[in-house]
Design a protein around this nucleic acid. Structure first.
Lengths: 107, 107
DNA sequence: CAGGATCCTTTACGATACTG
DNA sequence: CAGTATCGTAAAGGATCCTG
């Protein structure tokens, strides 16, 4: 057999990023976790218009992606803190560019 | 009256950017228009899984935002070309960071 | 306080047919 | 070729109630 072709699938990096960070809330959450550790209730206060369901869901999502780490202190009453992982810290330049873009756009 | 407060509304820049670029397709379209002018049919070929409806809708969306310019040559058969505007070129560093993020993530 | 479960609404998106 | 119009579906998101 000749003329066979080998197909390799190169995933579009834009799509990869959209899958990881797409949606209405993930980047807002990551923005708040930019350089601090926060509890669920603190995040809720910082992003007042997010529903609790979405906040929890998206945090779990980000944790599953390895971008956020969930630290359960196992205390009573419950105390759980969220922060960026090493991988998660790679979103920082992206967030910076989003802020820069908005600034340019509104100028 | 004293102790009155003046409230100014500072829109979160992340939200601004999400409103302009959010959704499944806008950034993929902008990525293709990164440094070239393309016709509708060319964009359709470059992003095979987008529906024609969404492609046209999002292009109009981006044009309304002033990020993309629609150039209608008024010929028969129709010939319409899309490209980034000056403002639209500000997405370039953002796209670069999305690519960099995907790369870091997959590493 | 953190979060699970359920139900419901909204909106994003897709398929198809049609037009100048 | 570059659209418009319509209809239908799937996914995202929201409200509320409940639990350890």
């Amino acid at each position: 057999m000749k003329d066979d072709k080998i197909y390799i699938t190169v995933r579009c990096p834009i799509r990869t990023t959209l899958e990881l960070l797409g949606g209405k809330w993930k980047l807002l959450i990551l923005h708040q976790l930019y350089d601090k550790t926060l509890r669920l209730s603190e995040l809720k206060n910082l992003i007042p218009d997010i529903s609790e369901k979405m906040l929890i869901q998206e945090l779990k999502n980000l944790a599953d992606s390895g971008l956020v780490i969930r630290n359960n202190f196992g205390e009573v009453p419950p105390r759980v803190e969220y922060s960026l992982t090493e991988k998660g810290r790679n979103v920082k330049p992206l967030i910076e560019q989003m802020i820069a873009f908005a600034k340019h756009y509104e100028a």
